[in-house]
């Protein structure tokens, strides 16, 4: 099991997940959208393929706490 800290522009949530789950599944559990957002796992930007890869495949070890962010940058933002 791992602890995933899901952060979006407006929400912060903790989700306990299995390493065999994917970031996409965790976003679904957290009711967080990724449409038009830049998604990163511990600061590493995830591609569309990575979103459907398991945490294990993304190099996350059992017992770890990871940050999964989905950030939408509004026009003009840097």
């Amino acid at each position: 099991m791992i602890k995933v800290l899901v952060k979006t522009n407006t929400t912060r949530q903790e989700v306990i997940a299995e390493v065999t789950e994917t970031p996409a599944q965790v976003f679904e559990k957290a009711n967080a959208g990724v449409s038009g957002a830049m998604v990163n796992l511990n600061g590493t930007v995830l591609s569309a393929t990575d979103l459907n890869s398991t945490f294990e495949q993304l190099g996350v070890a059992e017992g770890a706490t990871v940050n999964l962010n989905s950030i939408v940058k509004a026009d003009g933002a840097r």
């Binding site: 099991m1 791992i2 602890k3 949530q13 903790e14 989700v15 306990i16 299995e18 065999t20 059992e62 017992g63």
Partner: peptide, 19 residues
Amino acid sequence: NVKFKVSYSEGKGSITPYG
């Protein structure tokens, strides 16, 4: 919010603070 959970994954057992 889920604090702890149990699951089953054949051959991939683990004990962590979260489950």
